[in-house]
Amino acid sequence: MNNLFPDYQKISRSSYIVLIGFSSEIETDIYSFKQLFQRNFGYAEKVRSTPHLTMLHFIASKKSIPPIIEVLKNFCAKIKSIHLQFTAFNSFERNKLLFLDLEKQEDLSNISTDLQKEFKLAAPEISIERKKLRPHATIARCPRMKLPQFNDAVEFFKGIPYQKSTYPKSIAIFDQNKRKEEWRYDFENVAWQ
C-alpha cells in the first residue's frame, strides 16, 4: 500500500474553520448561558467551547495555510468593522443546537462569500464547504437529548431577553483535527499571533 501512495503522509489534509471572536463581555455572557444550560438541562456538547462565530469551513494541507493567512490579513479591516447584533435565542431543531442568534447582515454574508473566492484563488487545492452563512453563537448541542426536553430548553432560553452588540475581537484559523489555532489576529491588541 505504501508503494501505491508514497506521498500520502506529505499531503495529509486537515479540516479548518475561520472563527470570529467576541468581546470579553459577550464571551462572559455566553459562558454564563452555557453554565445555565448545564445546570438546568444536563450535559450537552459545545458547552465548554470558546464562544465564536464560524465564518467558513475548509479542508487544506498545511502548505495551503500561509496564502490563506495572507488573504485573511487583507480582510481584517473589513471584518473588524462588522457590527454584530445579538437578537435572541434560537435553535436548529434537526441538530438539537441551541444558540444565540445574530441579526442577519449583508456585510457578514458578503465577506464570507468574498473570503471563499479569495481562498480558492490563493490556494486552489483547498476544499471549501459551501453553506449559507447563518451567524450564531452556540450555547449547546444536544444530539442525545430527547426532543421534548430539548424543546423545553429552547423555550426556557427564549424567555430570556438578550440584545447586545459588539465588534469582532479577533479572527482565527482553527485546525479541527489538532484542536488548536493555526493563526490568530487580535483586533483589540492589534497583534498577529
Rank of each mutant, 00 (worst) to 15 (best):
M1H: 06
N2V: 08
F5M: 12
P6F: 11
P6R: 09
P6I: 11
D7K: 02
Q9M: 09
K10V: 10
K10N: 13
S12T: 12
V18K: 03
L36K: 11
F37N: 03
F37A: 14
Q38P: 00
Q38G: 12
F41C: 09
Y43D: 13
A44N: 02
E45P: 00
L53N: 12
S64G: 07
I65M: 08
V71T: 10
L72M: 10
F75M: 15
F75K: 15
F92T: 04
L97P: 00
Q105G: 14
E106Q: 04
E106K: 05
N110G: 08
N110F: 03
S112Y: 00
T113F: 06
T113M: 05
Q116D: 03
Q116M: 11
K117C: 01
E118V: 04
K120E: 10
L121K: 14
A123F: 02
E125Y: 02
I126R: 10
I126G: 14
I128M: 07
I128K: 02
K132Y: 07
L133A: 06
R134S: 15
A137W: 01
I139C: 13
N151F: 04
F157H: 03
G159R: 05
G159P: 01
Y162R: 04
T166R: 09
Y167D: 09
K169F: 12
I171E: 10
Q176G: 04
R179W: 02
R179P: 00
K180F: 06
K180D: 08
E182A: 11
W183D: 06
